[in-house]
Design a protein around this nucleic acid. Sequence first.
DNA 1: CAGCATCCACATTGATACTG
DNA 2: CAGTATCAATGTGGATGCTG
Lengths: 119, 119
Amino acid sequence: MQKNPVQCQFVAALDSIVGKWKPIILYHLLQGKPLRFNELRRLLPDITQRMLTLHLRELEEEEIVKRVIYPQIPPKVEYSITEYGMSLSPVLETLHQWGVAHIERKQLIKQKNEQTKTD
Amino acid sequence: MQKNPVQCQFVAALDSIVGKWKPIILYHLLQGKPLRFNELRRLLPDITQRMLTLHLRELEEEEIVKRVIYPQIPPKVEYSITEYGMSLSPVLETLHQWGVAHIERKQLIKQKNEQTKTD
DNA sequence: CAGCATCCACATTGATACTG
DNA sequence: CAGTATCAATGTGGATGCTG
């Protein structure tokens, strides 16, 4: 733990959320339906197997995601959001909303700049 | 831009917020009072001069933070949140709240574990 | 199917010294 | 006071090949 408590709190929150793919993984799992490893891969076409595994392990560690193994061949593993993980929903939600607005704003500015060029 | 729009939106939001010290910089600036460079340094005792400069430049670039230079000697520069930057307030707020709860929860679990040891 | 192991590239941060 | 410049360390993510 560090000296600065506010810093800590942000860090604690961001650690759980940050990682190139964690927000989208959580976004999909927050839909409620458990997803298999390869289903997640299909939903995140650009993620590598390695990163999906790593991120899922980290989320599991923090009890944000639950991993259920069905002992069968071929293996089947399902990932789902935990009750605790659901508490992240408002965080992701506001973050997502801001992202949408932020992108829109950028495009507006870009358009304006292109207009003034032709003036 | 990438193929996945949801990914984009999260990335856009996180880009603005992520950076080891950005959340706390914003947290302090969101208090409303403009802060000088060295005032910020004092509020963030562990940040290096270099990182403070870099993060402030990035926030300025995105028009989240405004930089005002008073041409005098010794130099005086004040940083403040822009109106647009204020729109980040709810994002930081929910993030911060979740961080607080997350830390409390971890400590509760730790305490429980120490109890069961002595049982 | 659902991984793990290894090696590598690049991005982010830090340490330190110097300046108008 | 408010920086910049340079260099070094660390961290994060990607590519590839192998496995029960």
